[in-house]
Design a protein around this nucleic acid. Structure first.
Length: 269
DNA sequence: CTGACATCCTGACGGC
DNA sequence: TGCCGTCAGGATGTCA
């Protein structure tokens, strides 16, 4: 499940392989819910546009475009659960569930593949800023203010994209473990010290994952795009019943906001 | 403002 | 072996 580190890895990989190239042809599968913008508008905007830069905002991949008449636009791709953005040669067999194929002037194709169809693709004329703040760059004081007065569990708050965007289920659990904070704690009840630790833990686990992803960019973008997503060795995520790597207490699993949540009842307070 | 819950969708996995 | 039910999850929407 792509979260901030995976999305950043994919964005970087796609950038390296496509920037400066022009989109010469666009094929979209007739699948309305994948496209937040009407498919005809997407095709009209993309065809003839040049890809200047591909980057990440929250969990969204953003391609900055220059249109033929020098106007600008952005292509937005959200990978959802199973979305993949691949740079392939035209000869490469088109995988099942391919919803969009953009032909590039460099000779390759940018393909959007998404089995479960939670992913979304759209174009916009405005500069996309995302629903919340960037976890990697938010100043400490802003981070602390974000959670002030909120009774919601800190785990749920971390998943709320309108607060911090880019954090998903895996890194929320991992960051809470590293910060030593129980996921059910009220966000607004955390001390300044705890929030300081949480922000540091979040940045640490995200950067660590980005580093690992960076070494396997090609797994995400060139190949089938799946390898690499589950390479990390997590401390708590998906380790229910297994011994905590710090204290050997079995990791517990609970549900918060409909999301499975994993934590060490001893190390997290 | 909250949270609990359903919805979308299909591959993976466990049980029988 | 093979079928079938269940689960997972991000974003969104409904409802209490």
């Amino acid at each position: 499940m792509p979260e901030l580190p995976e999305v950043e890895t994919v964005a970087n990989g796609v950038h390296e392989r496509t920037h400066g190239q022009t989109i010469t042809d666009v094929h979209l599968r007739d699948n309305p819910q994948t496209f937040k913008t009407p498919p005809t508008e997407i095709a009209n905007t993309l065809t003839g546009s040049r890809i200047d830069r591909v980057h990440r905002v929250g969990k969204t991949i953003v391609a900055d475009l220059t249109l033929p008449k020098k106007k600008t636009a952005q292509l937005l791709v959200h990978l959802g659960m199973t979305g993949r953005l691949l740079v392939s040669t035209p000869e490469t067999e088109v995988p099942p569930h391919t919803h969009a194929i953009l032909s590039l002037s460099g000779g390759k194709e940018l393909r959007f593949v998404d089995a479960r169809r939670f992913g979304r693709l759209s174009v916009t004329r405005e500069s996309y800023t995302g629903p919340g703040r960037e976890p990697l760059t938010i100043p400490l004081e802003d981070f602390i203010t974000l959670f002030r007065g909120r009774k919601t569990p800190i785990k749920a708050a971390l998943l709320n994209q309108s607060l911090l965007h880019g954090v998903g289920n895996i890194y929320a659990d991992e960051a809470l473990f590293h910060a030593g904070i129980k996921p059910r704690r009220h966000a607004g009840g955390l001390t300044r010290d705890e929030l300081t630790r949480l922000r540091a833990a979040l940045i640490k686990v995200l950067k660590h994952a980005i580093k690992l992803g960076g070494s396997s960019v090609s797994d995400y973008v060139d190949a089938d795009g799946v390898a690499g997503f589950f390479q990390l060795h997590h401390r708590v995520y998906s380790r229910t019943g297994e011994p905590c790597r710090t204290c050997s207490t079995p990791i517990e699993r609970i549900v918060i906001g409909g999301r499975s949540t994993h934590f060490c009842p001893t190390c997290q307070r």
